[in-house]
Simulated assay, not measured.
Amino acid sequence: MKRSLLAALSITVFSSTAFAAGGYTGPSATVPIVTTAAANQASDDTRVVLEGTIVKRLKKDQFEFKDSTGTITVEIKKKLWPEVAISDVTKVRLTGEIDRDWFDRKVDVKQIELTN
């Protein structure tokens, strides 16, 4: 009796440990927003991937980003900037999420990449 209970308990513990170590690695059901026009209408925490140019600095870590559909404010922390200089004509891809509060909406950038 004790032996079968111990065996059943061991199987349960080891199988749950193996399952916890894995996880789903397939595609996501959510598709990120890819234009500033859509980003300006999106809800808080919506994932975005934008391609265009950073046209000017607004505040310390806030910038105006522009693509063919409009502009949006983006927040880019200093540690995210690449080692190369970026000007208002440099094409970039920004990955982040919408940060919306009562009066404004901006993109909290998590990654910045140079594009061709």
Score class of each variant (00 low, 15 high):
L5K: 10
L5E: 15
L6P: 01
A8C: 08
A8W: 01
A8S: 15
I11E: 03
V13Q: 02
F14D: 03
S16Y: 12
A18H: 05
A20C: 00
G22M: 03
T25N: 10
G26L: 06
P27A: 12
A29L: 11
T30N: 05
V31T: 13
P32F: 08
I33P: 12
I33H: 14
T35R: 08
T36R: 06
A37V: 10
A37R: 05
A37Y: 11
A37N: 03
A38W: 13
A38P: 04
A39D: 12
A39S: 15
S43Y: 07
V48N: 15
V49C: 07
L50R: 09
E51F: 03
V55T: 15
K56T: 04
L58H: 11
L58F: 13
K59M: 11
D61S: 14
F63S: 07
F63V: 11
F63D: 13
S68E: 10
S68L: 03
G70M: 02
G70A: 00
I72N: 06
T73M: 02
V74P: 14
K77E: 15
K79E: 14
K79F: 08
L80Q: 03
L80M: 06
L80T: 01
W81N: 02
W81D: 01
W81P: 00
P82A: 07
V84R: 04
V84D: 01
A85H: 03
A85I: 07
D88H: 06
K91R: 10
G96D: 06
E97T: 07
R100Q: 15
W102K: 12
F103L: 15
D104G: 14
R105H: 12
K106C: 06
V107A: 08
V107N: 09
V107I: 10
D108K: 15
D108I: 07
D108A: 14
V109G: 05
V109Q: 08
V109S: 06
K110S: 14
K110N: 14
Q111S: 09
E113F: 05
L114P: 10
T115P: 09
N116D: 15
